[in-house]
Amino acid sequence: MAETVADEDLKQTPLHDLHVELGARMVPFAGYSMPVQYKAGIMAEHQQTRTKAGLFDVSHMGQALLIGPDHETTARALEALTPSNFVELGHGRQRYTVLLNDEGGIIDDLMVTRPLSEAEDGKLMLVVNASRKDVDYAHFRDRLPENVTLEVIDDRALIAVQGPEAVAAVAAHAPRAAELGFMAAEPMEFDGIDCHVARAGYTGEDGVEMSVPAGAAEAIARALLADDRVEPIGLGARDSLRLEAGLCLYGHDIDEMTSPVEGAITFCMQKRRREEGGFPGAERIQGELEKGPGRVRVGLRLDGKAPAREGAEIALPDGPVIGTVTSGGFAPTVGAPIAMGYVPVEHSETGTPLELIVRGKRLPATVADMPFVPNRYYRKPKA
Rank of each mutant, 00 (worst) to 15 (best):
D142L: 05
I338L: 05
V87W: 00
G90R: 14
R274K: 15
D227A: 10
E349Y: 00
L225V: 08
V128P: 04
N101S: 05
E88C: 00
A64I: 09
A24F: 10
A119V: 03
I322T: 09
G277T: 06
R376W: 06
R114G: 03
Q286W: 12
S327I: 04
T149C: 01
L356M: 06
R295I: 13
M1C: 03
A44R: 15
D109Q: 00
G204Q: 11
Y38W: 02
D191A: 12
P293A: 12
E179V: 00
G323L: 06
A119L: 10
R229F: 02
K380I: 03
R50D: 02
A368T: 09
V197Q: 10
L247K: 08
A383C: 00
P280R: 12
L180G: 11
G328R: 10
V27S: 01
D155N: 15
M340T: 15
V20T: 13
D227T: 05
T352K: 14
R199P: 06
A216Y: 01
L22E: 07
E231L: 12
P232Q: 11
T49L: 03
A40W: 06
R295P: 03
A315C: 11
A2S: 14
N147F: 02
P83V: 06
G41C: 11
T266M: 08
R143W: 00
Q12P: 00
E205A: 02
G341D: 06
A168M: 02
P83C: 05
E186Q: 14
D9I: 00
Q270F: 03
L99P: 11
L89D: 03
S33R: 15
A221H: 08
H71W: 04
T51S: 14
F86Q: 01
R309P: 00
I106N: 04
M269D: 06
G251F: 03
E3T: 08
S240W: 02
T258D: 01
L116M: 11
F330K: 04
G304F: 08
V152A: 12
E313Q: 14
A336R: 15
D303K: 12
T366D: 02
V20A: 12
G215S: 07
G277I: 08
A264K: 13
Y137D: 01
A198C: 13
R376K: 14
R76F: 00
D17L: 09
V298Y: 08
A171R: 13
E205T: 13
R272M: 02
V27T: 10
I338P: 01
T113Q: 03
R132V: 00
L289Q: 08
F190Y: 13
P374C: 10
L124A: 05
Q47Y: 12
A53E: 04
G54N: 09
G277W: 03
M43N: 09
G104M: 10
G31F: 08
D136T: 11
L247F: 14
R132W: 01
D206M: 03
